[in-house]
Design a protein around this nucleic acid. Structure first.
Lengths: 316, 316
DNA sequence: TTGAAAGCGTTACCAA
DNA sequence: TTGGTAACGCTTTCAA
């Protein structure tokens, strides 16, 4: 009826009628059924997002940014966590596709064949986050983890360090961590410094204990290490606490740099020297991009580089 | 047709037919439309969740738990962030209701009148999280913030402290923080210790700088303060760093306790004495509860107390 | 500017 | 065990 018009295109209806309808809506407590609308119009106004986990600080702000921007545009967010498991991701993608979302946002970089097939067939905008893939499925928003790893290592080298270690996870699913490590290695090679000194800590998820054992490992194996670059601020915190336990002064005896610029890294917290990455902005931009592409604006840049920033504080 | 049965109730169909249908499904790449199913069956298999923000560590793990448990049960999660704004919450509730979710999960405790009306009328299970309200809208999963605040203050008093301060936010929307503070005051009164020593820091969201300025304020106003209880671990980190700046030994000169047991508080991180709260478990239990209530099992407990735990580490 | 009719892709219900 | 038919509550399209 006319009700639909009042709700979707109020200007196509006579003001008087409009008011009458709205009054009725209020009186009856009518809430339109978007599911029926979606079925009929073939637009769901839903965007799906897949993240490995919300813990660990990396993606939480991105989901915040996504959610906020989508809401402002009248869209809703369907969220699934994959727990770093490609099979769960594939299942979740299938489940989401069954809701006919107007777009999909992914933070993982490894997909099963099944997942790739589903994504291809879906014919909706797909945005990959937190990296700049060479061959994106559709489009991407993020920054170069490799360049970031490189930049921080260069920063440490510029500060005069001759022995620079790296602490990260060894998980094969942590593609981004591997890229940061690759950037670290690039820098060492470019400076002809020394062979890579890497402490790879087993397990998923960053946590401080990885930093503690990583620093211990590094210091035992390469005594002249004077700086460490950690793949996340959580790891850096662990390294910091291990250094303190050993009576090492930071940054004089050992410089420590993190990654992520989590809240705890701030001036009044750890005062951690780190790499700031635009987590929230990635979410906002992903929302805009997925909606634009959904509107058929295929002319836009497919890969958006939001950059990163070295933040110098007290630990390096 | 029979396809629907093969998908929903495979046991109601002859194995042979079942196989043929499944083969066809694969060959055609058929993905059922859940929206249409929802419209027809009046069950959407969607649960909506509203959180103030994912940043700040408190709710991220709860959403992880929710998402994981819902997925296991074949449900999906519609997520919205309200940015601590009751009006946004009300809008988001309306938007979610338009999707006909089978249940709603809320982390905020303040709702606008409009929101309350909508919630009442919805006739779906509503689960409130992270507190034990005296009069829940429907049901709740959490723990007593007041009891937790009380317990930590008692812990500090038991350790012999005679001057105990509290640092928290002053935001009126932070109901839970106020309850923790109330618990702190209860304990002081029960011990006949001293009048409350509260540093209320303006602003939304916990962050370390609140802890830094809070500690400075406390120490200036009440010189004989030897312990502070912070409304979150982030605040505690700020207090810790301020103490360090002042050359104060922790816990000898000043004991510092946090709240939340965030990752950074762990043994290899800050080694922070804190209150552990079951964030992930709240999410899991909320998922189970909302689904059970949706199945008409109205007999279950409406308020689930998951408790908390004082974790004694190195700072108090 | 408004209304009537025909779907959208499922599931519920009833026959066969 | 299977298939036909009628909703479910919208939007689209077309006619008035």
């Amino acid at each position: 009826m006319t009700v639909s018009r009042v709700l979707r295109t109020p200007d196509k209806v006579r003001p008087e009628t409009c008011r009458r309808v709205q009054a009725a809506i209020r009186k009856l407590g009518y809430v339109p059924d978007e599911a029926a609308g979606a079925l009929s119009s073939r637009r769901s106004r839903i965007i799906g997002a897949l993240v490995s986990t919300l813990g660990g600080s990396f993606f939480a702000s991105t989901v915040d940014g996504l959610s906020q921007t989508l809401r402002e545009q009248g869209y809703q967010l369907l969220l699934a966590t994959t727990n770093y498991t490609p099979e769960i991701e594939a299942d979740s993608i299938a489940a989401m596709l069954a809701r006919r979302p107007d777009g999909l946002v992914l933070t993982s970089t490894q997909h099963t064949d099944m997942a790739n097939r589903l994504l291809k067939r879906a014919r909706i905008p797909i945005v990959e986050l937190w990296e700049l893939p060479e061959a994106p499925i559709d489009s991407a928003v993020g920054f170069s983890n490799r360049a970031a790893g490189n930049a921080m290592t260069e920063f440490l080298a510029d500060a005069g360090h001759k022995g620079i270690g790296f602490i990260g996870r060894s998980s094969p699913f942590d593609r981004r961590g591997q890229l940061r490590r690759a950037g670290y290695k690039d820098a060492l090679a470019a400076r002809s410094l020394h062979a890579p000194r890497v402490a790879s800590v087993a397990g998923l998820g960053d946590d401080p204990s990885a930093g503690a054992s990583g620093l211990a490992h590094l210091l035992m194996r390469w005594e002249d290490t004077t700086a460490v670059f950690c793949a996340s601020d959580s790891i850096a915190l662990g390294a910091l606490s291990e250094a303190r336990r050993r009576g090492l002064r930071v940054p004089d005896d050992i410089a420590i740099a993190g990654f992520g610029d989590f809240e705890m890294a701030s001036e009044n917290g750890l005062a951690l020297t780190t790499v700031r990455v635009p987590g929230f902005a990635i979410g906002e931009e992903a929302a805009r991009l997925v909606l634009r592409r959904g509107n058929g604006e295929a002319t836009h840049k497919r890969i958006v580089d939001l950059g990163f920033q070295i933040v110098r504080r007290m630990t390096a």
